[in-house]
């Protein structure tokens, strides 16, 4: 896209300090979505925002080395597959599609918790990978 902002010392230092916390916050939003506001969509976008910030400050090249295109493409479909796979798993265990109660043998509530966790994980992975892929595609085109 534009020139990387590496020569700006303050921006570089602040983002170096902030990026781990942004990623950590994304994970918190992802896995705390059962108890507070948040979930896969928000977590995925926040995680992607952390990666985009990294790409803006420390050049696209380094971000792409950390998150190779093949891996990003793989993760786009992996999230959907996790979501769909959870549904299929419910079918295989004798329930309806995406009816998580059958996932646990002893307590339907545990099955629901597990199902929601898996499904939100799938959403989070797909959203992160999709946002990163879209950003990389845009930024890459600007450079060429």
């Amino acid at each position: 896209m534009k020139e990387p902002l590496r020569q700006h010392l303050i921006l570089r230092m602040v983002s170096k300090f902030l990026i781990p916390y942004i990623l950590l916050f994304a994970l918190y939003v992802q896995f705390h979505g059962d108890y507070g506001p948040g979930g896969g969509f928000q977590a995925g976008v926040i995680f992607a925002a952390g990666i985009v910030l990294y790409a803006l400050i420390f050049s696209l090249h380094r971000a792409r080395r950390a998150f190779p295109d093949r891996a990003v493409e793989l993760f786009i479909s992996l999230g959907v597959l996790i979501y769909g796979g959870t549904g299929i798993l419910c079918l295989l265990r004798g329930g309806r599609f995406l009816d998580y109660s059958v996932l646990s043998t002893h307590d339907p509530i545990h099955g629901q918790h597990l199902g929601i966790l898996l499904v939100e994980l799938g959403v989070g992975i797909t959203v992160t990978a999709a946002m990163v892929a879209i950003f990389f595609a845009f930024a890459d085109r600007g450079r060429a």
């Binding site: 979505g33 059962d34 108890y35 507070g36 506001p37 979930g39 969509f41 999230g79 959907v80 979501y83 769909g84 549904g87 599609f97 995406l98 998580y100 339907p108 509530i109 629901q112 918790h113 199902g115 929601i116 499904v119 939100e120 799938g122 959403v123 797909t126 959203v127």
Partner: peptide, 24 residues
């Protein structure tokens, strides 16, 4: 039925799992 404190999450991921799958 779902046992999740955040009702929004329960509706989004469990009751309306199909819709969220569509959104994904």
């Amino acid at each position: 039925e779902v046992g999740v404190e955040n009702v929004v999450s329960a509706v989004l991921a469990s009751y309306r799992g199909y819709d969220t799958y569509g959104e994904t």
